[in-house]
Design a protein around this nucleic acid. Structure first.
Lengths: 171, 171
DNA sequence: CAAAGATCTATGAAAAAGAATATTTTTATG
DNA sequence: CATAAAAATATTCTTTTTCATAGATCTTTG
């Protein structure tokens, strides 16, 4: 057996690549860049994120995301709003237009996920998700404990959200 | 819970990103681009691959890989050799120089993988790998049944090695 | 409280990736 | 067998990403 075939990082990378591949093809047909999808999906529930937080979540470098947000803002898909307490930060929120673009993509994504999940047994799928979540929790940078303020009054967007609990970070 | 937090493709992508992240930082310190590592690791056991096969395995587009191979060939890390039966194809093989660069990276990669595996229970880790392998097998393009000829006689390279790392690093 | 350091986003130049297509060789077809 | 279609790699041109750093604001501390 070749080295990479048993190497966890490679298995993860390849599985990720293949799993996302099908949906990315779908995005491509619709003319939606992958980054745009990822940003919109992350902002789906209406809670805005700062550029840094968002970059971390969409797995991009901060300058890359800044420029992507520039483009998306120009297209009216998201907008920047200032953060009350801290004028260095900027929060990125989805707009109604962004939501309109996102909606059918979300539906397609759910369909696609179902196809993927059909490949493995249901309990196995559950365990897979849990294990991945554990890896993520153990490796993701700790949210700096001040990230859970609640004050972003929605302007043009309706939404409710649910800032959730502090991360485990045991290990 | 946010949409993406339960969405398998995202869990895979983020876990992959975080898991590889630590090692990529190590590569960066050593001045080795990620693509170079991936190509060398894929060629580690000496078997050469055509550009297309290699691109599929290292998760790059073919033109991207062609250009990476150009650079690596210029650096003497790999070399192209023609394929006997088909003059369209080119096989990319690791060189002694490439192997020399790879060796310590492999050791570091094994160390890193051990750290990661320590996060989850051993049986869980095994199941994780198996599940990922199953997804990959189900989604990867079928090898066209003619890919398994054996004739790559090594020219300038010594073969067979086994740099395995000791290093505890349990946690 | 002023200065130094840290944090956050943006920017600019350089490198890499991507899309489309050219080129060469192989395979299939009438 | 000639020609059309397919396949594999390379190339060109454009867009995106990356690296390094600037600019601005916040935090710490002597």
């Amino acid at each position: 057996m070749r080295f990479v075939d048993g190497y966890l990082p490679y298995l993860l990378a390849r599985a990720s690549h293949l799993v996302s591949g099908g949906f990315h093809a779908e995005l491509h047909r619709r003319g939606v860049p992958v980054g745009v999808w990822r940003v919109l999906a992350t902002l789906a529930d209406g809670e805005p994120f700062t550029v840094g937080e968002l970059a971390e979540r969409v797995l991009m470098k901060q300058p890359t995301l800044t420029k992507l947000v520039d483009r998306m803002e120009a297209d009216g898909l998201v907008r920047r709003r200032e953060v009350p307490g801290d004028r260095r930060k900027v929060r990125v929120a989805i707009t109604a237009r962004g939501r309109a673009l996102l909606e059918p993509l979300l539906a397609a994504a759910r369909r696609h996920e179902r196809e993927i999940l059909a490949i493995v047994a249901p309990e196995e799928a559950e365990l897979l998700k849990r294990t991945l979540a554990r890896l993520i929790a153990a490796l993701a940078p700790a949210p700096s404990a001040g990230e859970m303020e609640e004050d972003h009054a929605e302007g043009d967007d309706a939404r409710g959200k649910q800032a959730d609990a502090a991360e485990g970070l045991a290990q």
